[in-house]
Design a protein around this nucleic acid. Sequence first.
DNA 1: AGGTTCCGTTACAACTTGTTACCTGCCACT
DNA 2: AGTGGCAGGTAACAAGTTGTAACGGAACCT
Lengths: 246, 246
Amino acid sequence: MAIPRLLVVDDDAETRSMLTQFLQQSGFIALPAESEAEIRSHLEAGRIDLILLDVMLGAENGIKICAQLRTEQEVPIILVSALSQDHQRMAGYEVGADDYIAKPFNPQLLLARVKAVLQRARRSPSLVYRRKTAIFRFGGWSFDAKRGEVLSPQGYQVALSQRERELLKVFLASPHIPLKREEIHAALDVEREGAGPTEGSGRAIDMLVGRLRSKIEADPKEPQMLRTARGVGYIFSVDVETEEAG
Amino acid sequence: MAIPRLLVVDDDAETRSMLTQFLQQSGFIALPAESEAEIRSHLEAGRIDLILLDVMLGAENGIKICAQLRTEQEVPIILVSALSQDHQRMAGYEVGADDYIAKPFNPQLLLARVKAVLQRARRSPSLVYRRKTAIFRFGGWSFDAKRGEVLSPQGYQVALSQRERELLKVFLASPHIPLKREEIHAALDVEREGAGPTEGSGRAIDMLVGRLRSKIEADPKEPQMLRTARGVGYIFSVDVETEEAG
DNA sequence: AGGTTCCGTTACAACTTGTTACCTGCCACT
DNA sequence: AGTGGCAGGTAACAAGTTGTAACGGAACCT
């Protein structure tokens, strides 16, 4: 796929330029926008793969805009906000946002989210992606995200710990993309309430990966799915099939 | 009773978030809303036990909204306002508000009022109670909240203790949401008249959960419904179907 | 009174998960 | 090739969390 084109919508000039700059340095094409009108003109003018939308958009309301866009377009949207309360997050999801990230955010985390959403959008033939998607299949395995049930190719249930399941979800969300340790770490800590200042703590990720490998790789010594990207991080190199569930 | 669900209506984002946060920390489920439209959508979408309504609601008028809601719904309403003048208060009561509190208010006072109103609403055989759903179905089980009857998937009646039933209600009210121990504890103690200062007493919740599991989980060692959210609390991960009764 | 049930506390075992330390193998550079 | 450095795998450990058996007090019933 071509370089993803992102639209950065924020009414604060500084935030806007900071964000676009960061995203451009990260290899994306990032376009700034300030208002709903600008969003629409961009959408009409050319391809936009993802919109980063600030919830507190001056007089306008990001959530409202998101809801409207969602009824008309199929552009993935990540809501950005200073409000990290759960209810806000829920409100965001309810109007169809693909993800939600709170300011101030960890740049790595933002990157991870952006990549994940782009990946999902690419995979789904339409905007079929709903948060409902609950069952993933990959290399014979099946993973029910809702129940946390992991079934081996032979159909036996395998017990993963909480953290291992979360790690698996992270990889399932971004197959075929090398993920840096910081990205993984950030993505994992999204789940956690505490969400400390993303302290890159030692080699916890390595251990986690090792433990997950020992459970889902046929030969953990020679991982086929959860491979190492030396000098970078890890990469989940298996096709993932997502299945809607009731 | 389940964790009370409060709707916080205020057009000031900061107040809204402050209020919802405080109420959530106090063991309630607090949802934010900004306009009359949002109130209505929340009311249609799910159970709301109490509305905290700001009198000065931007262009709209809180008192008017209150009056209208009162003619249609039976939700308890507490009016919140910067105006503590008597006539305002009177106006509030006249339109049927259950209580009236002036900003800036003492958090403890607010809590006390909220609890008091909830208590009244519960006790009165009013319409609120009548509309209350009484039968829950989840994972093959059925639970008649009114009678406290719990039927297993095979149709056998299972005897739960009082406290176990209350715990079950708490979870039934908030499926798929991780609940912290303090939240559960607070929710259980809302029920109790005494309502001590929400002392987090040891591991009573753990025991309670364990006992409930042993009664309603097929394999208590491997809970499918009442799962633990490590480092957080517990989560009831089953779809709950609610059935109107009488 | 005696028994029963409920329920919170305590204690301990099992499990999770991050850290440290050591080892191995890869890679770059002679 | 040889070699040194370094990234990554993993065993061992430590700290924290949870499940649960056992205990005991309180309320209730007969």
